[in-house]
Design a protein around this nucleic acid. Structure first.
Lengths: 109, 109
DNA sequence: CCGTATCCTCGTCGATACTG
DNA sequence: CAGTATCGACGAGGATACGG
């Protein structure tokens, strides 16, 4: 069970899956879309997702090389929960930061 | 945005919130319910959740001491997404492990 | 019972440099 | 363009001991 949570408990995984909701993206496009992720972590995250059967990796033997990533059917089923989390996060972001400030203010007089 | 994902991107947070879905729990009860968590991490996780306004902490001044934790209204709204993730995880656990074995077998001949 | 305080150890991640 | 390799720093987190 903890093994499965590691799939979704990784923030990069969630963000990458979220980006793939509208269809196929290239490596570089993902790199630009997911702000703050390093090339290394993007590679590792995609490998992980591919290993778990959540995304497909398609290499086009061209020059320059082109690699496309897309959600599998299994990945799409997860997407619903992920977007729900995304909605929750954006909906309550302000509320949470307010709580944090209040909490910190109470403990640092 | 990444700050908010840190709330749910932590596996302990997710597990703790999941345990609180049926109501109030004491510290020790949570400690036993969430398998594998250390006392230290449970404390830190609960402080984090309290700081974010997802959990209330109620100290009963008795001997021995008793501390109850419960979800706030905000925490309950998150619970829906969390249980959705939980359902997804249990529903596809087998499928994912199968993918993993297949992937590993293909790369380790 | 419910913590806090230390210490110490792993793994994780970013930076950088280099290939096909 | 899309990676792989290497390294070094950093912090999460377990173990332990102790306090209210």
């Amino acid at each position: 069970m903890l093994q499965i949570l590691s799939v979704i408990g990784d923030k990069w995984s969630i963000l990458v899956i979220g980006q793939l909701r509208d269809g196929t993206l290239r490596f570089g496009e993902l790199h630009r879309a997911v702000k703050g992720i390093s090339q290394r972590m993007l590679t590792l995250t995609l490998r992980q997702l591919e290993r778990d059967g959540l995304v497909t990796r398609t290499v086009h033997p061209s020059v320059p090389p082109r690699v496309d990533y897309a959600l599998t059917e299994l990945g799409t089923t997860l997407l619903d929960s992920v977007v729900a989390l995304g909605h929750w996060a954006t909906a309550h972001r302000q509320e949470i930061t307010t709580h944090r400030r209040r909490y910190d203010a109470a403990r640092r007089p």
